[in-house]
């Protein structure tokens, strides 16, 4: 039942995207996010859409899975879109002017762009990161990218270790939760009926034993780690070392081109050849 949960929705596979170095994917995601926030014209959004579709295709993950990923945020999307539609003032005549409702063309354009932006953002980053990168690879990537911060005393290794241990123990704790639930059920506990408050209360007898045993686990694990000579990242080597391959460099170039193209597309319609405008937009964005 609950043990089916996969954290971060990783879909194992062997596509080009799966094979990329996690660091590459992290950097590319950031670049992609920048591009998404620059986009502000129909042409640039079209470019982004094509880019995202190419990513989905390359990941060999089916479109239906990808769209399911957006489902949970549809309500928020509609809500923000409506706010944009109703609250944006336009320069010209309102399209609709009824009672206190005034709708301008600018409002609709803005709502559509906003929704597109969020959808593209979510699909793009989840394809690049969560769907095609195992959580552990992601942790390794983050540790490696952030390792320069070690010099100024940020405990990067400790954080990465904490994250990977958390990931390791999720299935174990889920299993344990199930056991405790069954134990409580067999003594007559009821988790499925009653209102929200009653159900929340029914969870207390599950959470308390779960917490107690987690602390015990944590202590035992710490002892076991010490017994295996763990002492942080002091003089520590790694079995799997992250290495950029030619594939990664190709992707870097491709995405760099893509992002530049999007930024150009976003700025061109304002006035071709007027580069001062570009700077103005950059400052505006910041």
């Amino acid at each position: 039942m609950i043990s089916d949960i996969t954290l971060g929705q990783f879909f194992p596979g062997y596509s080009t995207l799966h094979k990329l170095d996690p660091r590459t994917k992290l950097i590319l995601s950031v670049a992609f996010i920048v591009a998404v926030f620059f986009a502000n014209s129909p042409v640039s959004f079209l470019g982004l859409l094509i880019g995202v579709l190419v990513l989905v295709k390359l990941s060999r993950i089916s479109f239906s899975v990808v769209f399911k990923g957006i489902k949970p945020i549809i309500i928020i999307l509609i809500f923000t879109a409506l706010i944009n539609v109703f609250l944006t003032d336009g320069a010209g005549e309102p399209l609709v002017d009824f009672w206190i409702i005034e709708i301008y063309t600018e409002g609709i354009v803005r709502a559509v762009f906003m929704a597109l932006r969020v959808i593209i953002l979510i699909i793009g980053t989840s394809i690049l990161l969560t769907y095609t990168t195992s959580p552990i690879a992601l942790t390794d990537g983050i540790e490696s990218l952030l390792s320069p911060l070690k010099k100024i005393g940020v405990p990067v290794h400790t954080f990465a270790m904490m994250m990977s241990i958390a990931l390791r123990f999720i299935p174990t704790l889920v299993e344990e939760t199930e056991k405790i639930m069954n134990a409580q059920k067999s003594r007559g506990a009821d988790f499925t009926s009653g209102g929200l408050i009653k159900r929340a209360r029914a969870l207390i007898p599950i959470l308390i034993p779960l917490f107690v045993s987690s602390f015990k686990r944590a202590e035992e694990l710490a002892t076991a780690m010490e017994c295996r000579c763990y002492r942080g990242d002091k003089n520590r080597t790694k079995l799997v070392k992250l290495e950029y391959k030619s594939r990664d460099y190709i992707w870097f170039c491709a995405v760099a081109l893509f992002v530049t193209a999007i930024i150009l597309l976003a700025t061109l319609p304002y006035s071709i050849g007027y580069s001062g405008r570009l700077l103005e937009i950059i400052f505006y964005k910041i």
Binding site: I136, S164, R228, R236, L239
Partner: peptide, 15 residues
């Protein structure tokens, strides 16, 4: 410690 068997076995030697 690790989410994959071989990485767990490697934990000690890594340390």
């Amino acid at each position: 410690v690790a989410t994959v068997v071989e990485e767990d076995v490697a934990f000690g030697p890594e340390n």
